[in-house]
Nucleic acid binder design. Structure first.
Lengths: 361, 361
DNA sequence: TCTGGCACTCGATTCTACCGAGTGCCAAGG
DNA sequence: CCTTGGCACTCGGTAGAATCGAGTGCCAGA
């Protein structure tokens, strides 16, 4: 792509006018409308000739001859990267956010669920919240609870307030007392360590206890991997409002149902250092009519989770970006607050110096 | 409504033909098509005159003069109550179900989530799973874990494998040791009792401990009430496929987002002794284009939860009913299995004799 | 280089005609 | 009395023609 650099300032202004107009009206915009836009002081004829250039360079397309122009993905990209000013939340929205994070109480899962609701309320797009993985988060408590004769539930409470659980099939019938012993040993070994690195050193006298402990140990390891595939989707009904083709709606909804896909989508986008992926930029076919806005959720400088917005490519990028950033930041702060206030060990803080989340653009 | 009783057998046959045809094709069906249907041996003229009668009585409507007929809600109702034969799952579907319940492992939340997926897979409608409330389920374990300096997390494991949790704001800074003592006292008092009726009898020597314990006690009571408002929605994208008006899709999706509404909808329907609510029969305006199929999930004869299907009024009722019933039953069995296999107390079984879930129609 | 003018395109809208599925009615036949 | 074939009629949907208008590309003149 040779022409990713700048555009003629006038072309840029025209492109900007087209994008903003189209975002507002969803109608192809013609040279006449552009000429009326603020900051443009040339006639429609001039604009027309600039538009053919813009079209040749791939920033605009005509749905059909003799219709107005519509931005391409590339056009939106240029707009987002070079033209749009940062965008701020309105006072009402800002108020909503701060009140939300003041009022919200309680427990992690609920917090995430409600955060996704907040985001989609603010923007009227569908939202996704991917919680940070628990890689570095230490265990606060582990417990084994007998459920059936040969089933036990492993419950781990992490320092960030998350509760992870997993059923364990026992190879034989284990009396409650043995479970209790195993539970105690696990608790002693796990407290203060991250999920993945729990290891009970020396064997107890009891072989049954040891068997249970080792099962639970590997289950803890599994938890670390599995935990972060639960995502929180907010306001899917907004999608139906955003698209008028019912097929598109179905395809997008179906994609949203596949949590793994969504998680890796957001992760991909973040890893490429982007905060916006437009149309086909992320390689996910069924979402080619969508734009995705992502903001990291970083806890102590470590990017763990993400919040995202999903809307039509003609979305209000500045506003969506602002909302995602603010909510992502606040959520991160909130999560860190829980972590930091811990009465005892806070190894994450010690091992990793605080670092500002690297902003982009 | 005077005319809820039976219909002329011939009228009934015609109505049945119209309904089945319309369910299949989504096109208004004319007298000619009906005449060709199996079991009808009269001419189209006769059918026409019967149809005017059916229309006068409210079972059919014409979208416009000189189009075929479409069933009304009342028409579907009659079909479901009097005409449709029970309906069975195909062998492939039956296989899917049984394999699912054999394979599914682990923990309650995941079980419910995946069950909703199963249901919507079987039927290609959107599904809802409302877990049984924990009224009668006894506590297997309770634990207090300190999170922040003045925040503790109350984690309760119930006999059915559910894990309920709630953050508690502490009025003062409580050292871990005090929490541990309180946790132990709670555990002793709660184990084997249902969530609502946990009471720690005699005070300890320590006032701080007692304060924490009483806070936790009331939190346990809250948990009982709150717990059942988390529902599991499967396959919302199916809705986009079922309706072609994008407005309808949006309205229905928006309703599905309000968990409380959905829960009370299903509850209402079940309480009225129905398993199907068609169109406006449930008073929920935005869902007037939908039919809801509900089946109870009963554990030990106690109806606690429900599974539901949400589709267009022209849904395949026999199949949907069969799927919902089977999955509801299996889910109930599954939940009871966890309960029954408990190594120690099983008070529910003792106090309530097993009773067959009363079938209807 | 910009601009106003102009011919041209082509989707959207409207109108007409027409087809055909479907109806209601009726008179004849069981 | 019920059924049936016949018949005129309705009216949505489709196809084609006419029209409208927003928008374009091009060009000559400032």
């Amino acid at each position: 792509m040779p022409d990713i650099q700048d555009l003629d300032p006038r072309k840029a202004a025209i492109l900007e006018a087209v994008v903003t107009e189209y975002i507002g009206t969803a109608q192809p915009v013609g040279s006449h409308h552009v000429a009326e836009a603020a900051g443009i002081n040339v006639s429609s004829a001039t604009i027309r000739s600039e538009m053919v250039a813009l079209e040749r360079e791939g920033y605009l397309v005509q749905p059909h001859t003799s219709a107005g122009r519509v931005p391409t993905d590339k056009g939106y990209r240029f707009f987002v990267d070079q033209l749009a000013e940062p965008g701020v939340l309105g006072p009402a929205q800002r108020h909503k956010v701060s009140r939300f994070f003041e009022q919200v109480h309680g427990e992690m899962e609920e917090l995430l669920e409600r955060t996704s609701g907040l985001l989609s309320d603010l923007t009227s797009y569908a939202s996704v919240v991917v919680p940070p993985s628990h890689d570095a988060v230490v265990v606060r408590s582990v417990q084994l609870v007998g459920l059936g004769a040969r089933v036990a539930l492993l419950v781990a409470v992490l320092a960030d307030g998350a509760v992870e659980k997993r059923a364990i099939e026992l190879p034989e019938e284990i009396p409650d007392e043995v479970l209790a012993v195993a539970s105690g040993r696990l608790q002693a070994a796990a407290q203060g360590h991250p999920l993945g690195s729990v290891h009970v050193a020396d064997p107890s006298g009891d072989a049954a206890v040891d068997r249970v402990v080792s099962l639970a140990e590997s289950a803890l390891g599994d938890l670390e991997c599995e935990a972060h595939d639960r995502i929180f989707v907010g306001g899917p009904s907004r999608l139906a409002a955003a698209f008028d083709a019912v097929d598109t709606v179905r395809a997008v909804l179906a994609t949203l149902e596949q949590q793994l896909v969504v998680v890796s989508l957001l992760r991909d986008v973040l890893e490429r250092g982007l905060s916006v992926a437009i149309g086909t930029e992320h390689g996910y076919e069924p979402l080619s009519a969508c734009a995705v806005v992502v903001a990291p959720v970083s806890v102590d400088g470590q990017v763990g989770g993400a919040v995202g917005l999903l809307g039509p490519t003609r979305m209000n990028y500045p506003q969506a970006l602002a909302a995602a950033r603010v909510v992502g930041e606040q959520l991160g702060d909130r999560l860190r607050a829980t972590l930091d206030a811990g009465p005892s060990a806070r190894p994450v803080r010690e091992t990793r110096p605080r670092r500002r989340a690297r902003g982009r653009r």
